[in-house]
Amino acid sequence: MGIFRKIPHWPALASVYAVLAVFVYGWTIYWFLWKLPSWIYYLTMPEILTIAAYSAAVNFLESLLLLSLPLFLSVFLPKSWVYENFISVGGFLGIMVGGFLLYFSSISAAADTFSYSLIWPAILFLVISICLAIFLGRLRMIAQVVETIADRLKVFLYILIPVSLLSILLVAIRNLIR
C-alpha cells in the first residue's frame, strides 16, 4: 500500500504530463505541418485526418510512457526526493528528457548502422538528468520556474487529451468494424 501512497495527486501528474505532452505532440505537429502541403497534393481530407488520428493515438501512448519515468521515481525513491516536489522534479526531468529526445531524434535519423556509442551516452544522459532533476528540482527558484511553466502548459491538455481519446476511438473503429 506504501507504493500507492507515493503516487502523486492528479493535479501534479497533469502538470508534469503537460510538459511531456508539449514535447511529444509538438514534435509530431511540427512534422505534420511540414508534410501537410505534400499530402494535400494527393490525399483527401478524411485520409489526412486519419493520419492525424493515428499520430495522436501514438503520441498519447508516448507521453504516458514518458510520464511513467517520474512516476516510477516517485514511487520507488524516498518520498522527499521526488514525491514531495513532484511537479518541479518531474517537470525539470521532462524538459531535460524532451530536449534530449529532440537531439537524439536527429542523430538517430542520420545513423545508418547500429552503434552502442549512441545508446550508452543516452543512458548516461538519462541518469544525469534524473540526478540533476532530483537535486535542482528542490531548489526554490528552479522549482518556481518549472512549476510556473508546467502550470501554463496544462491548458493544452484540454485539447490534447480529448483529441487523443477520440483518435484512439477512431483507430479502433477503423480496425475493428471494417
Binding site: 514535447f23 511529444v24 514534435w27 509530431t28 512534422w31 505534420f32 508534410k35 499520430s55 501514438v58 503520441n59 501512448l61 508516448e62 510512457l65 514518458l66 524532451g98 529526445l101 529532440l102 537524439f104 531524434s105 536527429s106 538517430s108 535519423a109 545513423a111 547500429f114 549512441l118 545508446i119
Partner: peptide, 13 residues
C-alpha cells in the same frame, strides 16, 4: 526524421 519523438528513434535503433 521520424515524426514520433519517442518511438521513432527507438524503433530505428
Amino acid at each position: 526524421r521520424p515524426a514520433s519523438l519517442v518511438f521513432g528513434p527507438l524503433e530505428k535503433q
